[in-house]
């Protein structure tokens, strides 16, 4: 394509040709399908650029009849409107679902990652101190992690313990410190989370300095964490 044609092409797409020039250009396009295709592609590209820079430069004032521009402008505005609305609708949702949070400032816990769409994410909410309940939970969790690993299916599991459930993660009370450590070593996609509110309350109300098993992460508010996970698309299981 000659450079003069290229100039014409740009002017045509911008709707800056006079009526006569336009007619001439349209004639050229009819004979040259490649030119027609480029005109359309350039039109789309410009439309996308205008979306990226939300306010386009002010239109240059020029004389002359520009009858034909309305069709392109309507098409472009329609596309942009639709793109804007669709993007506004879809983007936040996706961003929300695919975000992972590192649980503490030292970078422990699960690394931030973009979740694959088929990744299964489960947050177990433990508020019960019964060791039998905890034992069954650990067996379930281990069984699931092993099965998903064997099938190469992505999975993330968090066990959030608060109130009486904190017993599972307390050094002095837990019956499963070693088991928790083994599980945490074996499965990087498993995290045990303790609620700081519960820890603080035990100190204030009962003078207990809680010592956690080394594999436990601490989060400010257990319930808030569970809510956030649900908003991020995790499945919720109350133990």
């Amino acid at each position: 394509m000659s450079s003069s044609n290229e100039l014409d092409l740009n002017a045509f797409v911008d709707g800056e040709l006079t009526a006569d020039q336009q007619a001439e250009f349209l004639e050229a396009m009819r004979d040259d399908p490649e030119l027609a295709r480029q005109a359309c592609e350039l039109g789309q590209l410009k439309a996308q650029l205008r979306l990226a820079y939300a306010s386009p430069p002010p239109p240059r004032l020029r004389g002359g009849a520009r009858v034909g521009a309305s069709w392109r402008a309507i098409a472009a505005s329609g596309i942009l409107l639709v793109l804007g609305v669709v993007a506004g609708w879809l983007l936040p949702d996706d961003v929300e679902r695919n975000r992972f949070v590192v649980l503490d400032a030292d970078g422990r816990g699960q690394t931030p990652a973009t979740a694959a769409n088929d990744e299964t994410r489960i947050v177990f909410h433990l508020t019960n101190a019964d060791p039998l309940v905890a034992a069954e939970l650990l067996d379930e969790v281990e069984g699931m992690l092993a099965a998903y690993q064997a099938d190469h299916r992505p999975l993330r599991v968090e066990v959030v313990s608060h109130s009486d459930g904190l017993a599972l993660l307390r050094q002095s009370l837990t019956a499963y410190g070693t088991r928790i450590h083994e599980l945490a070593q074996r499965f990087p996609n498993l995290t045990f989370v303790a609620c700081r509110n519960t820890i603080d309350r035990l100190r204030v109300e009962r003078g207990i300095e809680v010592r956690l098993v080394p594999d436990a992460e601490v989060i400010d508010s257990g319930v808030n964490h569970v809510v956030r996970r649900q908003k991020e698309g995790w499945s919720y299981i109350r133990v």
């Binding site: 336009q22 349209l26 396009m29 009819r30 027609a36 295709r37 005109a39 359309c40 039109g43 789309q44 009858v67 034909g68 069709w71 392109r72 098409a75 472009a76 596309i79």
Partner: peptide, 10 residues
């Protein structure tokens, strides 16, 4: 131009 517009992939 109307005819052309319908041919355009846009």
């Amino acid at each position: 131009e109307f005819r052309f517009a319908w041919k355009c992939p846009l």
